[in-house]
Design a protein around this nucleic acid. Sequence first.
DNA 1: CAAAAACCATAAGCTTGGCCTATGGAGTTG
DNA 2: CAACTCCATAGGCCAAGCTTATGGTTTTTG
Lengths: 301, 301
Amino acid sequence: MRARQLEVFVAVMRAGTVTAAARMLNISQPALSQILLHTEDELGFTLFERVKGRLRPTPEALEIFADAERLSAGLDGLRRKTTDLRLGRTGLVRVAASPPPAMAILPRAFTAFRAQHPDILLRSHSAPIAAIVDMLRAGDASLGVAMDDRLPPDIEAEVIGSVGFACLLPAEHALRRKTELTLADLVGLELISYRGNTRPADELAHAARAQGVTLSPSLEIDVSISAVGFVQAGMGIGLVDALLPWHQFAGLAVRRLANGPEFPIALLTSRTRALSLADEMMRDQIRAACAAVLSEYRVRA
Amino acid sequence: MRARQLEVFVAVMRAGTVTAAARMLNISQPALSQILLHTEDELGFTLFERVKGRLRPTPEALEIFADAERLSAGLDGLRRKTTDLRLGRTGLVRVAASPPPAMAILPRAFTAFRAQHPDILLRSHSAPIAAIVDMLRAGDASLGVAMDDRLPPDIEAEVIGSVGFACLLPAEHALRRKTELTLADLVGLELISYRGNTRPADELAHAARAQGVTLSPSLEIDVSISAVGFVQAGMGIGLVDALLPWHQFAGLAVRRLANGPEFPIALLTSRTRALSLADEMMRDQIRAACAAVLSEYRVRA
DNA sequence: CAAAAACCATAAGCTTGGCCTATGGAGTTG
DNA sequence: CAACTCCATAGGCCAAGCTTATGGTTTTTG
């Protein structure tokens, strides 16, 4: 039994006459009549008795009607679902990002995405990079945004921008007079920065060596945002990525670090998993949002 | 989405490769490949990523897989059901009959039917004729067997035989010497027979008048089988249809009534309801069983 | 009571779906 | 590197599904 035959049968059962059923399905009466006759021929038993030019359901028709109706409705539902999928009107996009892009880029990307596709569920996971990789592998997220492009081979990293470092000064710190700081300015000061053996810590150490200075981070952090509290408490100067919108936090002065290393901003996807259309649209939005955020930063600097 | 596309999609999801799926569906690999490609084209999004010659389901495919599988299974189930209906391997046949045919004809008809169609449920309702008509009208039974052919116009009655009357004698009654009785033999005796204003009572009275005798039923019954107890108790001679297998009851002697009226045996159907194939097969069995029973009676007589 | 309306079926013709066999290209493996 | 496996394409066939045109029945209506 083909899907069309099912629809025709259900329509005739509901409408009572072939003509009305044809109207319901927006096809001609002979077309529907043919399908119905052909269906009966294939089934091997009649579905309707023709009596005085009218149709009367046979017991067999009554017997299969309930199933036919259920299946027909199910097919309709699936068709609706697929058109929704085609138009990107349904689905769930999960993005895992480390905190700086999660706070700086995703809000903008999600806003633009939501404006275009109001019916797609969005989920943002703020996680350290190792967790992001795990989520991408497991399919718990289809997109990742991190500040590292050195990743396992099964993770594809597309660099969509880069940012330098920012120095977070306690509100009344002397260095706030300068609009830009260099590594040399920080020598001998209490520094709050990334723990050793991480990408940014290595890059910072390398840059310092290149510039002939020695830095001594006295407080190591894991995620840049956790520096906020320590800086506010006056425990030192935060030396962190410039991406996170630090100006949102009170009690901080933010200054660019000149001649420092750059963080790549990478869009991560699993090589073993395909992106849905919705994912791809979100990826575009993230690229755009990243570019927009970076250009704003450049203007401000 | 056509049913075939659904099946192909499910098969590919389950099999993992186009080739294996084609084997599952017993079609050629190119045929399945085409259907899959065409389906993706119609849907507007890809269901599988082709990577290194292999297929990998897209998130969209995963999203609709559950529904597709459910629907595909449902279609399979419906197809099985329809072939069962065609072959008469499923269904329910309900027959309403008055007690004499229910006891004399239906056992034989049901036995033959069951031998041919062991999977069809059978239901026998023993009921007075008015109830049979109601059941046929309501669809609670599709076939009826009664000993009357004068029925409302919406009930079709096909006479499939006729039987005369039988006289039920208490075990030691004097009349048992005769192999056949006439109405004249019964004059003046205590009779147990149908209540007035019923078809058989009228016919009996008419026959008696025609033969110039007067009968005086002293105990009126509704259904012939209820005569058994009264006859066994010696309350009189039962004058009832010859159809019911009276010889099954102990303490009775059965003698044919010669020159008495005949009961029609009628097969009843509703004119407003169609018969299922199973109903029609049962109707044939009832006709055959009736003929067989009547010929046995004739041999015995 | 006859004309109009409603209903179903058939006929002829077209487009597309679904299937085949044959073949080729791409990737994996012994 | 050759054999194997996998998927896609090409060309051809038949049946499904749709159209318009038309005719036969039965019911409704003026």
